[in-house]
């Protein structure tokens, strides 16, 4: 939580589109996502499984396996430069050095055959070839100390399996930060961890965010984690951002029916609502293969209108950085027009 008024934008994602070709058709995993992250800001991306949150992150890092995946459109501006257009070798310099990533599962993202020391020194020396091994080792130990690993001088010579899940995630974070990255992409960093360990890791991430001014993109499905960590939140559904708002606004007055449903359907510990049923969003998330041009949420929406079934809603600015893509906030004229256009197109 360290939003400065005139912070510089470090990462701008504009109309990003990532499609996957499958036998059944084209999966539009990410379909026109835009957001901006400023220096020292923590941006949350929430959504259910399959909503495209992880693919968004992987697309920013250009780690989409191709084929079948492909980034088909959009721009990712890092310090004003479109990193989707730079060469693979230039990208390698950015990856891990300027933009770093923490993955969900700390066991599968560390190499089990190599000592932590080898893995950390490799990262540092790859991006700063002039540092010798001794310096890199010293820096690695310093990073491990920063993330709170006890007696790092000894533990650095351990293998990943000798660490517990929470400790492994700390090693991952230490490694991700060892090159002073400006942007940290955290893809469900605490999902595989227990609550008490989760609290430790989240504390650590926000501390790093405050101390080093690193911008953080936190991808998660847990609305509680977002509430405590993020300055701004994007809610994703079926490959698109349906709502963006400052965290306080989003929880106080969610505009999109999906966001509203999502917030209401989580049981809360502090407010006892015994014997009351949970609000639940009926139905299942849509299949994103060959999605028709409609609001993907309309079959589950309790406020759905005729126009929702025929056209995707345009984005509407509600003020104070609150943007929502829902027909509820669009004036009647535009709705009528969109409905007419859509029916004409369908006939044709």
């Amino acid at each position: 939580m360290s939003l400065k008024p005139n912070a510089k934008a470090v990462l701008e994602v504009k109309d990003l589109k990532t499609y996957f070709k499958t036998d059944d058709g084209i999966v539009k995993a990410v379909d026109g996502v835009s957001f901006t992250v400023h220096e020292g800001e923590t941006l949350g991306i929430v959504g259910e499984s399959g909503s495209g949150k992880s693919v968004t992150n992987l697309s920013i890092m250009r780690l989409i396996p191709s084929p079948p995946g492909k980034i088909v459109g959009g721009e990712v501006l890092f310090e004003g430069e479109d990193i989707l257009k730079v060469s693979e070798s230039e990208m390698r310099d950015i990856r891990g050095d300027k933009i770093s990533m923490i993955f969900q599962d700390p066991m599968t993202s560390l190499n089990p055959f190599l000592k932590i020391s080898t893995q950390m020194i490799e990262t540092i020396r790859l991006h700063n070839p002039q540092t010798d091994k001794k310096e890199a080792l010293a820096r690695s130990i310093e990073m491990l100390k920063l993330v709170g690993i006890p007696s790092p001088e000894k533990r650095i010579y351990s293998y990943p399996h000798q660490f517990s899940g929470g400790m492994r995630q700390r090693v991952m974070i230490a490694q991700a930060l060892s090159c002073n990255a400006q942007v940290l992409l955290a893809d469900e960093p605490t999902t595989a961890l227990d609550v008490t360990i989760q609290a430790q890791i989240l504390e650590l991430i926000s501390e790093i965010n405050n101390k080093m001014g690193t911008a953080v993109i936190l991808v998660t499905h847990d609305l509680g984690v977002v509430a405590g960590m993020c300055d701004k939140v994007c809610v994703m559904y079926a490959g698109r951002i349906v709502e963006t708002a400052l965290t306080d606004d989003l929880y106080a007055k969610p505009a999109h029916p999906y966001t509203e449903g999502l917030i209401k359907s989580v049981p809360r510990m502090d407010t006892a609502n015994k014997d009351k049923r949970l609000f639940s969003i009926e139905g299942q998330p849509p299949n994103v293969i060959d999605l028709p041009p409609c609001c993907p949420f309309h079959p589950r929406c309790h406020k759905a209108m005729e126009v929702c079934k025929h056209a995707y809603p345009p984005e509407k600015d509600l003020g104070n950085q609150h943007e929502v893509a829902c027909w509820l906030y669009i004036d009647e004229e535009t709705k009528k027009q969109a409905l007419q256009d859509a029916t004409q197109q369908e006939k044709a």
Binding site: V195, L223, G224, A227, G228, Y251, V266, R268, D270
Partner: peptide, 10 residues
């Protein structure tokens, strides 16, 4: 340690 989905409380 369990997060609560409300930024003000949190």
């Amino acid at each position: 340690a369990a997060p609560i989905p409300d930024p003000k409380v949190e």
